[in-house]
């Protein structure tokens, strides 16, 4: 168990190192990419700052809570983005389509691990800089009444959110074993999850039902933030964790069936 964990850690380190060499080979591109990622975080900060300049907050969400929400969204988004998001949603459909997925099948590494983590996005590590500043700003400027229990629950729900994204993108990426251009639908869902940076409580009732229960993207930021601030509903926490586990199981089933269906198109 420890031995295989150590092996996976070594592989992750190698993937990271390789991606770092690859990305920094074109210095200017690396700079632009990093600036773009930092700008994306800043953009949301500017949006919420503008919003609270107009009014003290929006129903049920004051300034500090809005910032925590945005910061929570970015921590899940960044972790997913660094580790597996692009690999599963964009890279996997491409290599399945052109047949280069063969190379993954022939290597002595579990296929899912290789497909999900083979490109670690080093540039995204630098996006943690404005993100950390965001947290420091929150802690310095607002009085937060949090407890050890709420922080622990928050961390747990952030992990749940990352697993939720992993399951969702694995499910969408795996459809490429059957669909010729499966990445289109993936991009659409990816866009939809991006909306999670806003508080879903303010949405109209029908839309709220969708984002809380049907495609519960509320688990990405709204729920962990509510848990940290102490107003999450225990039943909904259970629902979200249960939903994530079912989604993960479904994604793994689809992945395994996809592996069997793969026909190595271009070989």
């Amino acid at each position: 168990m420890v031995g295989s964990l150590k092996r996976y850690a070594q592989l992750l380190y190698l993937f990271t190192k390789f991606d770092f060499y690859l990305e920094t080979a074109y210095g200017l591109n690396f700079l632009f990419a990093t600036c773009g990622k930092i700008f994306r975080v800043l953009l949301v900060m500017v949006f919420f700052k503008t919003l609270v300049l107009r009014v003290p907050g929006i129903p049920q969400w004051n300034e500090a809570q809005l910032y925590i929400l945005a910061a929570t969204f970015y921590i899940t988004d960044l972790i997913a983005s660094i580790l597996f998001h692009r690999n599963l949603l964009f890279h996997l459909p491409r290599i399945i389509r052109d047949g280069t997925f063969d190379r993954i099948l022939t290597k002595p590494i579990p296929q899912l691990f290789h497909a999900a983590f083979n490109k670690i996005d080093v540039g995204d590590f630098l996006a943690f800089v404005p993100f950390m500043y965001f947290w420091i700003y929150i802690v310095q400027h607002f009085v937060l009444s949090v407890t050890f229990g709420s922080v622990a629950l928050y961390v747990l729900l952030v992990v749940n959110a990352v697993v939720f994204i992993f399951a969702l993108v694995l499910l969408l990426g795996s459809t490429s074993f059957w669909l010729n251009r499966g990445d289109g639908f993936g991009r659409l869902v990816d866009h939809a999850t991006g909306a999670a940076r806003f508080p879903f409580d303010i949405f109209p009732e029908k839309l709220k039902f969708v984002v809380f229960y049907i495609l519960p993207v509320a688990v990405l930021a709204t729920l962990p933030t509510q848990a940290l601030l102490g107003f999450a509903q225990p039943l909904y926490i259970l629902y979200s964790v249960g939903f994530t586990l079912i989604l993960l199981a479904a994604a793994l089933v689809v992945w395994n069936r996809g592996l069997h269906a793969y026909q190595s198109a271009s070989s």
């Binding site: 591109n29 632009f32 990419a33 773009g36 700008f39 953009l43 500017v46």
Partner: peptide, 18 residues
Amino acid sequence: WIEEAEPLRVLYWIVCNL
């Protein structure tokens, strides 16, 4: 002029949208 212009395009897109 540059090998991979995609990041520059993304950066422009963010500024443009803003």
